[in-house]
Amino acid sequence: MSETKVFGMTPTWRRDVHTHYCPGCTHGVAHRLVCEAIDELGIRDEAIGIAPVGCAVLIHQYMDLDFIEAAHGRAPAVAYGIKAVRPDKIVFTYQGDGDLASIGMGEIVHAVNRAWPLTVVFINNAIYGMTGGQMAPTTLLGQKATTCLSGRTAEANGYPVRMCELLATLEGPAYIERVALSKPQHILKAKAAIKKAFENQVNNKGFSFIEVLSTCPTNWGLRPVEACQWLEENMIPYYPLGVFKDFE
């Protein structure tokens, strides 16, 4: 009798490192999918990551890759700065919704529109996580946060921003897809999307943007499994999954 490993740790994941994420936070899943994509494409020596400000600021502790920490929202500009000098490298940003859809809205819109071959992984968990649960541009109507204790209202705060739909109106991007991490079937699709977003860059095929619906059990005040349920029932109806743009 012998054994075959069917699923184990991918080499880019830095073993023996505890992540700082709260139990059940799906940032870890998204990190792993990025690592798997990079390993399956064999681009570890070529990849350069740009860390955001927010919970994922320490992403470089978990991935064995070249990394730089950007200022809040500015990761796409840093990515262009690198890609201008090193078009031979695979440059990606990993940003949360406060970082990308609020303070960095200007940078991401122009980054997508300029349409160089780059990869963006955008984590949407509808809240500011690291700062302790404040309202994000993606916070749903009625959703409670520490800066809207009775729930977000359209009158006071406008409507949650749908980044994929917004960016898909631009001529530039090659590939835009929204995925989720709330159940295994979604995770498999998320993996395929993230891998494709890197593969596009390897093949010099333009800008790829993947929005990943993710959980924040701590700031949502839910247990990890309940948080996945909440995402399914509340986020996916407002942020529909699917491909919004594909050059093929």
Binding site: E3, T4, V6, M9, G28, V29, K191
Partner: peptide, 12 residues
Amino acid sequence: RTCPDVVLTVYR
């Protein structure tokens, strides 16, 4: 594939 902390290894 669901684990956020890369804790699990699966063998056949």
